[in-house]
Design a protein around this nucleic acid. Structure first.
Length: 269
DNA sequence: ATATGCACCTGTGTGC
DNA sequence: TGCACACAGGTGCATA
């Protein structure tokens, strides 16, 4: 489910928790991709939530103690705000009871997500992720540097969180369609104008996707339970065999390093 | 450096 | 209707 646009949408929808205190923590299933921090409850109960930030696909809830709750939504995770008395739902793994009658629930059917508490500096996963593709750091100069000497495919490169943080399978495909570049192209063979097109396309696609509230392919919801609408605007992702919205040619699906890639053989070179 | 295969999980859709 | 199978937004490992 969640790539940068979905995580950013969740972040924005969670802003109403700012200033609330964590009153109780209920860990029902600690076995996520990594075990939920054993001291999650002891380090968060009594703390006030003072920040809701995003770093790539990670969400960071800043606490008044200077600790941070680090969350990753994996493939199927959601962080959702409900009324305090709302009934437990399937796959509700951790619940933070908040002041002023709300409960923040980490729900994740596949349990590929992550929920930890600690100092920001202590999280190794944050140390090795690249710049945010919406920041000024993500420029044609940077992408040019990243692509030199690398034989790997441009799509694979865009999805490498160490190089750029937040792009996953849906948006890598969409960005490359928008840029007119085939996903299988080797990074080092890209021309400068193509690099520039990819940088522009990245901004356009991610900004549009955030504006639409992300993509709800099956079950993604934001923190207030609302779906996104960008799936209706997808150009190639999950559209194998359907006509390209721009030229009518059939969209193709190929497998690259274990993931499905989609492209229009006419619009993308 | 990079690709592949697999592992971790559950849910859904498809074809028989 | 039931069953087997493929596949799904992510990441990390071991192996080539």
């Amino acid at each position: 489910m969640p790539e940068l646009p979905e995580v950013e949408t969740v972040r924005r929808s969670l802003l109403p928790i700012l200033g609330r205190r964590i009153v109780a923590v209920d860990i029902r299933e600690p076995r996520l991709r990594r075990r939920v921090s054993r001291d999650l409850a002891s380090r968060t109960v009594g703390q006030q939530i003072v920040a809701v930030d995003r770093c790539g696909k990670y969400l960071l809830l800043g606490l008044s103690s200077a600790d941070v709750v680090l969350a990753h939504l994996g493939m199927s995770g959601t962080l959702i705000l409900r009324p305090a008395g709302a009934p437990l739902e399937p796959h509700d793994h951790v619940r933070f009871l908040l002041s002023r009658g709300r409960v923040l629930v980490f729900n994740d059917p596949r349990r590929f997500g992550l929920l930890r508490v600690g100092r920001t500096e202590s999280f190794a996963e944050l140390r090795c992720i690249g710049p945010d593709p919406l920041s000024q750091d993500f420029s044609a100069e940077l992408l040019l540097r990243l692509t030199r000497q690398r034989r790997r495919s441009v799509k694979n490169l865009l999805m490498d969180q160490r190089l750029v943080a937040g792009i996953g399978n849906i948006y890598a495909n969409e960005i490359l369609f928008e840029a007119g570049v085939r996903p299988g192209r080797r990074a080092q063979r890209l021309r400068r104008f193509e690099i520039e097109a990819i940088v522009r396309a990245t901004r356009r696609v991610l900004v549009a996707a955030i504006a639409a509230g992300g993509s709800s392919i099956s079950d993604y919801r934001d923190g207030s339970g609302r779906p996104g609408y960008f799936q209706l605007a997808l150009s190639v992702y999950d559209r194998a065999g359907l006509p390209c919205r721009r030229c009518g040619t059939e969209v193709r699906r190929v497998t690259q390093t274990g993931r499905s890639s989609f492209y229009c053989p006419h619009c993308q070179r």
